[in-house]
């Protein structure tokens, strides 16, 4: 019963939309009929343009996420292990962090021109911060006895990092990466909407500008669906794989 009530408002809105569009009460150049939107979406899906755009968006988002997370994890692990380093580097990082990633769009365009690389640069910058912050606190939270063991065994710094710090902090770092993944997708679509001529964001803005509102709405729905699926997938990976590490370190 409760589930059904939740669908009442969307269904009524959709019906009103369809009726309003058919009777020209709603402006047809902005609010095309839901049935037309479905048709346009189906067509774009079948001719492959939607899938290509999806591939492009996710390609840049995942590349940017990989680079940004890499930087975030390395910096975060170093800062987390050494409070002295944090005191020295922290203030500089804290000054850079509030720079909105999108402010780098013109700079990235200046360096790389249009294409994958400029988008990846902006996404990486945006992804560093959530991963960095979580990594620092994850490394801080490592069981102190583990670090003592490492000191006792006189492990060299690098293998101490590899064998103790990163495995123990991995489960929490994964949470940071999941947050970063959401950020990556949003930033990718944003860069494409603002100026990069590829991917889902660009498809939407072009559909709007060439006065095909039905295609734009279809793509908006698709973006929402893709984002939702992506998030669900990440949750699944988290549950399948990373829980194991959590219980292993808890034992």
């Amino acid at each position: 019963m409760n589930r059904l009530r939740g669908f009442l408002i969307p269904v009524v809105l959709l019906l009103l939309w369809e009726i309003g569009a058919r009777t020209d009460i709603l402006p047809p150049d902005t609010m095309s009929q839901p049935t037309e939107i479905l048709a346009a979406g189906w067509e774009a899906l079948m001719d492959g343009s939607l899938l290509l755009a999806t591939y492009q968006t996710f390609q840049t988002a995942l590349l940017g996420l990989a680079i940004g997370s890499g930087i975030g994890i390395i910096l975060g692990a170093l800062i987390g292990v050494s409070p002295v380093l944090e005191a020295i580097v922290g203030p500089t990082l804290d000054t850079i962090r509030p720079v909105p990633a999108v402010a780098l769009i013109p700079l990235a365009l200046l360096i790389y021109g249009f294409g994958v690389r400029m988008e990846v640069l902006v996404i990486s910058f945006a992804c560093i911060w959530p991963v960095l912050i979580v990594t620092v606190s994850a490394v801080r939270g490592i069981e102190p006895r583990l670090m003592e063991v490492a000191r006792m065994l006189q492990m060299p710094a690098l293998s101490r990092m590899k064998r103790i710090v990163l495995p123990a902090a991995l489960a929490r770092i994964a949470v940071g990466i999941r947050v970063g993944a959401g950020v990556a997708l949003v930033v990718a679509v944003t860069v494409e909407i603002v100026l990069n001529p590829q991917g889902l964001g660009y498809g939407m803005i072009i559909a709007a500008q060439s006065l095909r509102p039905e295609l734009m709405w279809a793509q908006l729905l698709w973006v929402g669906f893709a984002g939702w699926t992506f998030n669900a997938l990440l949750m699944l990976i988290d549950r399948r794989w990373l829980r194991r590490f959590q219980t292993a370190s808890g034992r």
């Binding site: 009530r5 150049d29 959401g182 679509v189 984002g227």
Partner: peptide
């Protein structure tokens, strides 16, 4: 909660910048 939650759950993961094209149209 029962009436609004599913609608909001659909809107929430939408990248905010994705509503720029329709917002410009309107």
């Amino acid at each position: 909660r029962a009436y609004l939650e599913p609608l909001l759950e659909f809107l929430r993961p939408l990248p905010a910048s994705a509503i720029i094209p329709p917002a410009i149209l309107f």
